[in-house]
Structures are given as C-alpha cells and as structure tokens.
C-alpha cells in the first residue's frame, strides 16, 4: 500500500521551477528519506504534500486523500514538523500540546494522557510547565515532534528535523524517529546524509527540483557497490594517489580516515579495468597491503555522484 503518491507534481515561482514533475511513491510504514542539497525543492515538496501550498501542476495523494489546501480530512491524518517550528512563546509546552490536541478534536481525557505520553517520549516532562519562549532550540525541536504526533498521524512529515541541532540534540531526535518505525509512515527531508542513512529505509534524491533516484538504501548501495575500492597500507601511500589519478579508468581517488587509519578510496569508471589493474599496481608499489576491499559506497558517495552529475541513473 502507498502512503504517499505524487504524479507530475510541479511548483513554479515565476519562471523558477522549485519542483519539476515529481513522480514519487512511498510505501506505507516506511521511513522515507528525501535527500537533496539546499534549494533542491525538499521544503516545497513537504509543503505541497501537507497542503500548505498549491501545486502549479500535478496531483498528489497522502493517506488516500488527494491533496487540497482546504482538505480538513487530510490534515486529520497527517503530522507536520516544519524546518524551524514556531510556537506561541507565551504558552507552556504542555499548553501548546493541549491546544494542538483540541485542534484535532481529541477528547480532553485523551489529550491529557497523550500529552503526558509525548512529553515523556521527547523528554520534556520536567519543562512541560515552562514557557516555550525559554526553551532551547533542541527542546523546541522535540516539542515540535511531540505536537506533530499528538493525533497519531498515518503519515508524518519532518522537514529537516535535525538541521539546526547540535550532535546531542540530533542523536535524541533521530532516536525518537527510529522509535516511530512501523507505527506510521515517516517522510523526512534532509540534507544531512548520515541522518538519513541512520534512520531511513528508502531514499529519494532530489536535485534542482527533479527526482534523481528513489530506492531502498541497501539496493542503492548495491547498485553503486562495484565501483568503490578501499586500500589500506602499512606505510604512507599518499604518493600512490597521484599515480592512480592519472589512470583513465579511475573516476576519483581520495585519502580518507577510517577509525583514524588512512585509507585510499578509489572510485572506478571501469570496474573490469580496475579489477585487472589495481592488484598489479599495488604489487608493483612495494607497499605492504593491509586491506583491499571492494566496498559498499556510503550514501554520501552515491549522493555526490548523482547530484554532482545531475543526471538520471
């Protein structure tokens, strides 16, 4: 079953296409990572799917409801956390959650229970009676997640939920998102690849308003796996980089650090050539080889390859 479906969803601002014919399908119960660089069209997509803005062309469905800005029944089924959640600073955290619960027409007894449950979940019990104006950014983000969950949404939209957080805040928010797995469909936009890699099952990569690829992360890794080699030597192997860079079948060579150890990461244009020639080059270098591995690329490798090239793969 699909929780989200877009058909040719397009949004123009004057002559600029913020989103250009998005076709997308998100399976029910998945955590979908919507990746893209800044200005790629992620927030526009989220706002379109939550009915906050109207498309120039195309149609979309969320939780079996066609998107319309005036659709009250759609808004009963979704939760939304904007990139920078805003609150009424004069309210306390609990007051805001109750207010959102009332907007969803929940019975007062359920509102109270749900507020307690969510405040505990986002670790804001101790600050629930404090004015939101005094909350830190991380606390506001966690309250934002809590308010988006009050109605037990079928589909939860999170727009860059971790972008403004420090590492501790980010870890907390990601762990909350992980706990939502199987409870609902989560559509999470982000430009932080490691966050998406950590919590999402499926990713869509968007660049300049167009969807470049959409696939489960593991499938994506396998699709791009054949071309990345990692080499580790006992001695300093930096001189080998310039030698490898000169070869026509090599797309990219870089020295990276893995657990503090220097590793040569090589991305091949032609894997057959690499399989034939790389062992020979290593042998002739006279260096002591500690590790030779054809690796799964990180999401970052795939992202840079796709977004950098700007083409469909």
């Amino acid at each position: 079953m699909e929780a989200i479906r877009c058909e040719g969803l397009t949004k123009h601002y004057g002559s600029i296409a913020a989103l250009d014919g998005l076709n997308l399908s998100v399976a029910e119960g998945s955590i979908f990572g919507f990746l893209g660089p800044n200005g790629a069209g992620k927030t526009t997509t989220v706002k379109l799917l939550t009915g906050l803005i109207t498309p120039t062309e195309g149609r979309a469905w969320v939780a079996d409801e066609e998107i319309e800005s005036s659709s009250i029944s759609l808004r009963r089924k979704i939760g939304y956390l904007p990139e920078e959640p805003s609150f009424y600073n004069w309210m306390s955290g609990r007051e805001f959650l109750s207010f959102v619960g009332e907007l969803h027409h929940l019975p007062s007894r359920e509102i109270k229970l749900r507020c307690d449950e969510l405040l505990k979940m986002v670790d804001l019990q101790g600050d629930a009676e404090r004015r939101i104006g005094g909350y830190s950014r991380g606390m506001r983000q966690r309250l934002g997640i809590a308010q988006s969950l009050i109605n037990r949404p079928e589909v939860l939209f999170l727009d860059e939920p971790c972008s403004a957080l420090d590492p501790v805040g980010r870890r907390e928010v990601l762990s909350i998102i992980q706990r939502l797995r199987a409870e609902m469909t989560v559509f999470m936009s982000s430009h932080i690849l490691s966050d998406v890699e950590r919590v999402c099952d499926v990713v869509g990569i968007i660049s300049r308003g167009r969807l470049v690829t959409e696939s489960p992360i593991e499938e994506l890794r396998e699709r791009y796996a054949r071309s990345v080699f990692e080499l580790q030597f006992e001695e300093d192997a930096s001189h080998l980089i310039s030698q490898l860079e000169a070869l026509p079948w090599v797309a990219k060579v870089e020295m990276v650090r893995l657990n503090g150890e220097p590793i040569i990461r090589l991305q091949a244009r032609d894997v057959n050539h690499a399989n034939l020639e790389l062992p020979r080059i290593v042998a002739s270098s006279g260096l002591t080889l500690l590790r030779y591995e054809l690796t799964l690329p990180s999401l970052e490798d795939i992202f840079i390859e796709l977004v950098g090239s700007g083409g469909e793969k």
């Binding site: 906050l52 009250i72 808004r75 904007p82 959640p85 805003s86 609150f87 907007l103």
Partner: peptide
C-alpha cells in the same frame, strides 16, 4: 512571518 500560522493551519482548522 514567524511560521505559527503554518503550524496551526496544517491542523484540521479552516482558514
């Protein structure tokens, strides 16, 4: 401007 309208109007509330 500050975004509270979006926070409220994405709930089941008429404009």
């Amino acid at each position: 401007d500050c975004g509270t309208a979006a926070m409220v109007l994405c709930k089941p509330v008429g404009r």
